[in-house]
Computed example of a mutant assay.
Amino acid sequence: MIRTVAGAALMAAAVISGMSMPARADAAADGLAAAKEKLAKYAAKPVFVPPGEPFDAKACAAGKKMLSIPNSSANPFLKGIIDRMKKAGAEVGLEVTEWENQGQPSQWVQGVEFAIRDKYDIVDLISGIDPATIEPQVKAAKEAGVKVMTSHFYDPSDTQNPFVSSSLTIGFGEVGTVLANWAAVNTEGKANILVIKSDEVPPTKPLMEGLRSELAANCPNCKIVQEVNVGVTEWATKIQPSVQSAVQANPDIDVVIPIYDSMSQFVVPALRLTGKTGTVKVATFNGTPFVLDYIQQGLVDMDLGESLDWIAYATVDGHLRDLCGLGSPAALNVPFYIFDKANAAEAGTPAGYDQGYGDAYLSGFRTLWKLQ
């Protein structure tokens, strides 16, 4: 009897085992197919979609000025956007000025106070400054008649600070899903990932949630080996040694994801010094030109880009609509586009801020602004 029961148990275990292995294999194959299908959307050339009805942007912007405060002026991605906003603003007569800073909240406070004193019409908190961090100043600006707006900061799932006039959101969670699916597809569903992140920057949370959830859904054999959190002001001193230590301690790491591509300038030398260039894949997000150059040089594998020039025009458009009572769009509506070795040259050599995405947005916004 004991033998019979034991034998039955062994047979049952064998049946279960035999069923579970193909089931797991099928799940992995299905997940990989889903990941490939989702990535296809981002391989297509971006299309311009009007964010609202046409309006007389010159009349709206006449005599108006905007102070743009990045989370750090050392970030070339943000610097590039603001430089392009100055150009886009000039087309309609909006004066755009950057409040240069080194990423210190006290400097952001000073920027808002300056805007109040100097009677700016708009304060643009761009990509990384949480209004809650400087809420007393944001409230004071509102009371003084200065509209504080955010751009490229909130995910659509976030709740806007009550003293902010409007927000041009971006799908950071969506970005995380693209990075996850790319890692899965480019390792045949077996990625061992090192993530470099900055938890102090609020968009990191939805991005990481998207990354983790998509890996769980589409890549059961992928894993995040390590997450390295580095504050924005410490990127230059801590990212390189952290990456070196991680890839040496975990030789199975085959993908590094610095979630914001300006981090790549410190990841690339770390991989070079450890002899991992070309064997460890690097995937990132933003589309900063020097990182697109890295792709052409074989130092980075993928950058999920968004045209900095397109972002600039969309930001000016959205903020002017709010300023003039037309209702701001809920999002930037700037499409993402995957750059890799197959198409990185489309961005120019060296890469530019507005190359590779097409130029439909230029005539699109100028038509919306009644300039043509």
Rank of each mutant, 00 (worst) to 15 (best):
P241C: 14
M263S: 03
P289N: 04
N250F: 02
Y353R: 15
V291M: 04
V268M: 06
Q240T: 13
R272F: 02
V268K: 04
I253T: 01
A270Y: 03
P335W: 11
E346W: 09
I239K: 03
L292Y: 01
A347P: 00
Q297K: 15
Q296R: 03
R321A: 05
Q240N: 15
T237G: 11
P251F: 04
F339D: 08
D309A: 12
D317Y: 03
L308Q: 09
G278Y: 13
A345S: 15
A344E: 02
D317V: 02
D317W: 01
I259H: 00
V268T: 02
V255A: 07
I253R: 05
G348V: 04
I224G: 10
F339G: 10
D317Q: 03
P329F: 11
Y260C: 13
T274R: 02
K341A: 15
D340Y: 06
E234D: 15
G318W: 01
I338F: 09
W235C: 05
L299V: 06
N333Y: 05
G348I: 07
S307R: 10
N229V: 09
M302G: 00
A351T: 09
G325L: 12
D293E: 08
V256H: 03
I338D: 07
D252C: 03
T315N: 13
A345E: 11
K223L: 09
L320H: 09
T315Q: 15
K223M: 08
V300A: 13
Q240F: 05
I311Y: 08
V280I: 06
